[in-house]
Simulated scan of single mutants.
Amino acid sequence: MNIIDFQKQHIGQATELAFMNYREEQNKVSSLPSVISIPDLTEFAENGLGVAAFEGDRMLGYLCCYEPWDNVFNTGAKGAYSPIHAHGAAAKNRTLIYKRMYQTAAEKWVRSGAASHSIGLYAHDTQAVAAFFSYGFGLRLMDAVRPMENAGAPSMSGIVCKELSRREIPLVRPLRRGLACHLGQSPCFMVSSEEAFQSWLVRAETRDTRLFGAFIGEICIAFFEVADRGENFITEMEGMKNICGAYCLPEYRGKGVIQALLDHMISVLKSEGHARLGVDFETFNPTAAGFWPKYFEAYTNGLVRRVDECALETGI
């Protein structure tokens, strides 16, 4: 096996591997859409941070990442991220192929100053997951999907579920603050300062998304936020909507409120012709991890490794 730099002439074989890997996951998760095209890989050939594994003229795999960026996950570290379309590997000896590719690619990423390495893997690709777990990665995120069919929640007396108008968006502010506080607690530790929260709130209230809320009288007790796209190229497929925010007041959890709201939202989106609903969530959020897998099926695992920063100083 020969590990070399990923270059433009490798894009054709890499795209074939990407298609093959996606179809493997689609065979496991039937509600995934049929993919017509893989995003263009040219930027990964141009940034010099990718590698490819070859046996003779046959590509065994490729592993690339976006250009590293600062303050990943609101830390002081620079991060390198390889999305699901930026890598792929043949089925035979896949664990070994990924290990060999990451060993070479990681050296490039560290030289670029990236101490945080992230990769999106298909959830049912046990060989790839095993490779990166053995090299120090841990699970942080999941993408999941479901068909746009009701979950079968019972009707809720005294609860009104509806889509919010633009002028009603401020009604969700207390819930957004509750969500931010929840994510700052153990074991999530995704802490936001008041300044950061207010800045995020402005962005959240002005972005092009839709809000659905469950109400008791004038009080919003739960909400879902839905966007046209999520965290990977699959979320951009026609007929797919993506949950990008959700919260239910603690005193109303376990009473069917969030399930009733989910069914209401699904009914509205289905009536508009949408076929699938996606969501991404942190797996170390126990509330989210306990809820979403009941109604959605995971199709990606988002893995993260933090390299010891002393490696950045050695000039590897």
Rank of each mutant, 00 (worst) to 15 (best):
R203T: 15
Q127F: 04
V29K: 09
K270N: 09
K241V: 11
I97D: 00
Y62F: 15
A289Y: 14
Y299T: 08
M142Y: 03
A260S: 12
L49A: 00
V145H: 07
I243M: 10
C161M: 11
E313V: 06
D40A: 11
C188Y: 06
L171P: 00
N150H: 06
T287G: 02
T314N: 03
I3K: 11
P286S: 07
E194S: 12
V202D: 10
A260Y: 04
P147D: 15
A53F: 06
E218S: 13
S193G: 15
E16V: 14
I216P: 01
M148E: 05
S118K: 08
G178T: 05
R140I: 15
A114H: 01
C65W: 00
G302K: 06
T104D: 05
I219Y: 09
S118V: 13
F6Q: 03
G290N: 13
A289P: 03
L141M: 13
G278E: 13
E67Q: 15
I219Q: 15
I11V: 12
G273C: 07
R111E: 12
M1P: 12
L277R: 02
E194A: 13
I216G: 04
G254F: 10
E16S: 15
M59I: 02
R203D: 15
E282D: 14
K108L: 07
Y135W: 05
D125N: 09
Q13R: 10
T75H: 06
E168S: 05
G76E: 04
F281D: 03
E25V: 01
E194W: 10
A227Q: 07
E297H: 05
A123N: 13
Y22R: 07
E194R: 06
R166N: 06
V145Y: 05
V191N: 13
N27Y: 10
R111M: 12
Y81T: 00
T104V: 12
L139A: 11
S134Q: 13
M20P: 02
N71W: 08
A246N: 08
I159V: 15
Y66Q: 06
I119A: 08
I4S: 14
E163D: 09
I266M: 03
R305Y: 04
